[in-house]
Design a binder for these strands. Structure first.
Lengths: 351, 351
DNA sequence: TATAGGTATGTTACCGTTATCATATTGAGC
DNA sequence: GCTCAATATGATAACGGTAACATACCTATA
């Protein structure tokens, strides 16, 4: 079991001090060209890799940040990750991703692992929860820069980035109302979560604004249990939820789905019993996943600038990391955009 | 800017040595019950978090492993991640995920970051490439335990876990042949990658076995450029590829798609011009994503045990990490399973 | 020629932990 | 009361790197 070479090993082999080798590695200070060459050659020979632990310990920063996401099997997470990484790598930082699987316990473990390994900061893109927020607060007491992405977290020393889900939900619902729908269902919500889901609140607001009474009968989640499953489970929630709605004496004429996958599941359910979208039931989704424009019918949905949120979160975080002292809270809410396709209006687009 | 408390701070406050506090933290050696209580109380008060850098530096292991994936926006990656994590957390290890976005350069950076931060081992689930393999080899010279998951990498000190994509591709194709198809297209391959894609080779093998000549005209990728995009781009590849196939003088009567998303894209294209699945074109996918059973028609596909691959990879890795010396290479290839739904055979399942 | 400033290296100490060895105290058994 | 082992704690020295300061040499300029 050969051990990894250290600066001292290189130094001994070249006949200089570790400090000189360090200067070569970090391209800092003066090193004679010849010495540098020799050092570089030996480094290569010995397959040197610098020890980030020692380096981080001494320098008191690791140039590393953690990104905590709840789920990874969807384009939202993927785009956030890409956005964050773009900014970070350009500035010489490394990103480590932790996945909480929507579990508060795993989320806490992720926070602690990242804190223990002394990341310079964290971007938190999990779903908000009372316990999760408490954990975060503890970490902030330990002076770790944190940015919340797409989830509530109120703390004076934290930044916040999100899309305007409320307005998006409102727009989506108003679109249906303008098409003449009055019986508009919401698919994909668990009663207990309702309060925290901005796009759902937008839905309620739109109904209120147009004098439509909220009908709890047509606000549904999936079958019990399905909403805790991983990955594409939201698709199932949509399917099950819609099945239920269709079994009602008076099913809704339109639905707003919690997200695109839920919407796709709902569309499956509608088609399966021989009804048509949008003629029998109009469907709006949320997120505008790449899939959405290729489904049949193409899905009307609300685009949110995911990639951009990632970039901004990363920029906020780096600013906070590199600031000498605590900065005041920065907030940024990006607009969503309703994209009308054929799942609400037939024949809008001819290909 | 308050600094994080250290063992020494706790020790000073309690009136003991850092060593004693360390014993409390690690629950190692003897500590008087009263002392332990006092230490724990002060630790809580001072919001102590152990320094993984110092700890890792001293102990020469971090109880941390890296997982490198190419893409994250798909159930495959998500399930691998879950499988790996289940095993790791049970054994007290932390996992950091790095995403290469299918770029060899980013992949190399991920390898290096992980190596620099002294993870105890790595699971590599990116797509194989000559350059990527070269990088990996360098790291192995630095004695880092590595497990390859679902990608080729031949090295005597590496383990290997995969599903049997070759057999899966073969089965899928034979299924179509048994249904009487002779003109079977393949959608979702770039010429240059063909050699490395086992499921494609299975397709070729099945054709050969049944005396069907390979027709390069009906083996297609997406439109140029689309196959480098992120996220669900494979869906577009399927759509574009199928469009092309349908424009041929003699389109195939069946296609085998590189994966389920490609298959779904292909189905969109087929439906869009008013053809039916499976009557006009039969479609087989690969992976059995949760979505697959809910599409219309439900997708015939090849299930691969993703979660299990993650678990086994993690077990292999831990074994290698905890072994005193280099272990011989372990390999494990898990069987896939053809799942027949209505995209190849109409009316198979009644709901 | 003395001086200043750039160039090239070395010395020292410390980042926060823990392995190892050393020391002290206690209690049980004879 | 003495011995031995278990209990409880401390002192020391690393782990690998780098910040800060010190030293030495060189060259250009007053």
């Amino acid at each position: 079991m050969r051990k990894t070479a250290t600066l001292a090993d290189i130094a001994a082999s070249v006949g200089v001090t570790p400090m000189t080798v360090s200067r070569v590695v970090n391209e800092s200070g003066y090193v004679h060209a010849d010495t540098r060459q020799k050092v570089l050659r030996v480094m290569q020979e010995m397959n040197y890799r610098r020890n980030g632990l020692a380096r981080g310990l001494k320098r008191q920063r690791t140039e590393t940040i953690g990104l905590v996401v709840g789920d990874v099997a969807n384009p939202f997470a993927a785009e956030v990750i890409r956005g964050v990484r773009e900014v970070l790598t350009a500035r010489g930082y490394t990103m480590f991703v932790c996945v909480s699987d929507q579990s508060v316990k795993e989320e806490a473990e992720a926070f602690e692992s990242l804190a223990d390994h002394r990341v310079d900061g964290m971007i938190v893109a999990t779903r908000a929860s009372r316990k999760g927020n408490a954990h975060l607060t503890t970490l902030l007491d330990a002076n770790l820069p944190v940015v919340a992405l797409g989830r509530d977290f109120n703390h004076p020393h934290t930044d916040f980035v999100s899309a305007d889900h409320f307005k998006g939900g409102c727009d989506a619902t108003e679109h249906l109302i303008e098409l003449g729908h009055r019986r508009i269902g919401f698919v994909g919500i668990k009663q207990s979560y309702g309060a925290g889901l901005k796009r759902f609140q937008g839905y309620l607001e739109a109904l209120r604004k147009h004098g439509i009474k909220v009908n709890e009968e047509i606000i549904v989640g999936g079958r019990k249990g399905t909403d805790q499953a991983p990955g594409y489970s939201t698709e199932e929630i949509g399917y099950e939820g819609m099945k239920h709605l269709l079994s009602l004496r008076k099913p809704p004429t339109a639905i707003f789905a919690r997200n695109d996958f839920t919407a796709l599941g709902a569309i499956s359910a509608i088609k399966q019993i021989g009804r048509r979208v949008p003629q029998d039931v109009a469907v709006v989704g949320f997120d505008d996943v790449p899939l959405a424009s290729h489904t049949s019918p193409p899905l009307t949905t609300v685009f949110q600038p995911t990639h951009e949120q990632g970039r901004i979160a990363a920029e906020f975080l780096l600013r906070r990391i590199e600031a000498a002292q605590n900065l005041p809270r920065a907030e940024r809410v990006l607009p969503c955009k309703l994209i009308i396709r054929e799942s609400t209006v037939s024949g809008t687009e001819s290909t």
